[in-house]
Amino acid sequence: MNKLLKKIDEKGIKKKFFAEKLGIAYSYLNIKLQNPEKFSALEIRKVGEILNLTLEEINEIFLLRK
């Protein structure tokens, strides 16, 4: 499971609700979850707000790919 999907699950948020909050289609969210590099800077910011992530967590999910 990728780091973003794990955070979504940890917060108890349904993917459909998460996609709506991001302003993207559920099917498009599933594509993006397979490849987090596809998120735009604005989407990354929204993800941080929706999930209440710290800057460190955002960096771990989107920038520090291991």
Rank of each mutant, 00 (worst) to 15 (best):
F17T: 12
R45D: 09
F39I: 05
A25W: 12
Y26E: 07
I61V: 09
E43S: 00
L64R: 11
L4C: 06
L55Y: 11
E43I: 03
G48A: 05
F39N: 01
M1V: 07
F62H: 05
T54Q: 11
A25L: 14
E60P: 08
L4A: 04
K11L: 06
E43P: 01
I13R: 09
K46M: 06
F39K: 00
N35T: 03
I13T: 10
K46C: 00
Y28V: 10
F17C: 06
V47K: 03
N30Y: 07
K3S: 07
F39W: 02
K16Q: 08
M1D: 06
F17W: 13
G12E: 00
V47Q: 11
Q34H: 12
K14N: 15
K3G: 06
L64A: 15
I24H: 09
K38S: 10
T54C: 03
I8K: 05
N2A: 05
I31E: 14
K14W: 07
A41H: 05
K32Y: 11
L55W: 09
I61F: 03
S40C: 04
K6Y: 14
K3C: 02
P36S: 04
Y26M: 09
F62S: 07
K15I: 15
L63R: 11
G12H: 13
N59G: 13
K3T: 01
L55K: 14
A19N: 00
R65E: 12
K16C: 09
E20A: 10
I44N: 01
K3I: 06
P36K: 02
K32L: 13
I50G: 10
K11F: 08
K14C: 04
N52H: 07
E10D: 13
G23P: 07
K38Y: 02
G23W: 02
L42V: 02
G48W: 03
G48C: 02
I24S: 02
L63W: 15
G12F: 06
F18W: 02
L29N: 03
I8P: 00
L4T: 00
K6L: 07
I24D: 03
S40A: 03
E43N: 03
N59K: 15
N30M: 08
L63P: 05
I50M: 08
K66T: 15
L33D: 10
F18L: 11
Q34N: 12
L4S: 05
E10I: 01
D9K: 13
R65H: 15
N35D: 14
F39C: 09
K66H: 09
K66G: 14
L22A: 04
L22E: 08
I50W: 00
L5I: 06
I13S: 02
R65M: 11
L5W: 07
L42F: 13
R45Q: 14
N30K: 14
N2K: 13
I61M: 10
F62K: 11
E60N: 14
K6R: 12
L55M: 15
L51D: 08
M1P: 05
K21T: 03
F18Y: 00
Y26K: 12
E43F: 01
I50E: 06
Y28N: 04
I50Q: 02
L5D: 04
G12Y: 08
I58L: 11
L55F: 15
R65V: 10
I61N: 01
E10C: 07
